[in-house]
Simulated scan of single mutants.
Amino acid sequence: MTASPAAVSRSSRGQAMAPPTVPIPASAFEPTDGTVLRWLGMAGFLINARGTLLAVDPLLEGFDMPVLIDFPIEAADIPRLDAVLVSHSDNDHYSVPTCTALAPVTRRFHSTRYVGELMTEAGMPAEGHDIGDVIDIGDVRITVTPADHSWQNAFPEPGQRVFRDEDCCGFRIDTPDGTIWAPGDSRLIRDHHLTMPSPDALLFDFSDSEWHFGFDGAVEMANAYPDADLLLHHWGSVDSPDFAPFNADPDTLWAVVANPQRIHVLAPGEPFRLGG
């Protein structure tokens, strides 16, 4: 739904919360006459593009922080996926428990070279990619896009690998019904994030975190594509009022985003049809 600021509820500690969950039915996995997205909560999405089924950064179980939402489906209830796309190795994006549970019903996992190696070592049918690679799945074409999210290097631990920019990515997903851009967690890369051909829908991370776009950077990105639908995510799911990456507030967007009617405060599991 396209909500108004008054529609956003708050936790007892004042944190903006996602609307009540809409369970995902079995029919969501059947062929469709268009492309339908469903927010899974956290940073995850389920995409059904005329019967081609993709999950982006799914996290449905086993997270290590308290959550504010009911997940809209259990991993065990997902009947099939043509692909799972994982943007980077943080456990709210590469959920090992979720991906392990999805492996028997997933044709292929796709991520960066680094995460692809982790998945292969865990026994998942995985493929790692370079930035710029193109993946064709049925009538869907996916381009791996750059991201800047190597936060681990700022907090080195003994024996830790040096993380590279190419260990993180986004995904530009071209469907028969339009383009979805999932840029992943990233700091703003001005000559990339502000200069792409406009997507029809932007999976929109607007948290005020120094290792993400930051609020001002997210708004600048949104306004660089004034006709793209903004599907809010990475907010309202984790009980973390003092942790910026998870505590974004949709109320802060209405006055600063061009064409604010394109802001979509979806409930977990609620269907969104690409192109209206």
Rank of each mutant, 00 (worst) to 15 (best):
V219Y: 05
A182V: 10
E121V: 07
P158F: 13
V115S: 09
V140P: 03
C168K: 10
E166N: 14
R113I: 09
S240A: 15
D177W: 00
A228Q: 04
G178S: 08
L202E: 04
R161C: 09
D249C: 13
A248H: 04
E166H: 15
W211F: 15
P241E: 13
M119N: 06
F171R: 05
S209K: 04
S237W: 03
Q160F: 11
A224D: 05
D191W: 07
P250S: 11
A248Y: 07
M221Y: 01
H129W: 05
T145F: 08
P197V: 01
T143K: 01
D165C: 02
N223Q: 06
P250Q: 07
D177I: 05
C169H: 14
F215V: 09
H233D: 05
L231G: 03
D227L: 03
A228G: 04
P146D: 01
D148G: 05
D249Y: 12
D177H: 06
P125V: 09
F213A: 11
F163M: 11
A244L: 10
D177T: 14
L118R: 13
S209E: 14
R141T: 15
L202Q: 10
G217D: 09
P226C: 04
N247S: 13
M196E: 09
F171W: 14
D177F: 07
V115L: 10
G184W: 04
Q160H: 07
R172G: 04
V134S: 14
S240K: 08
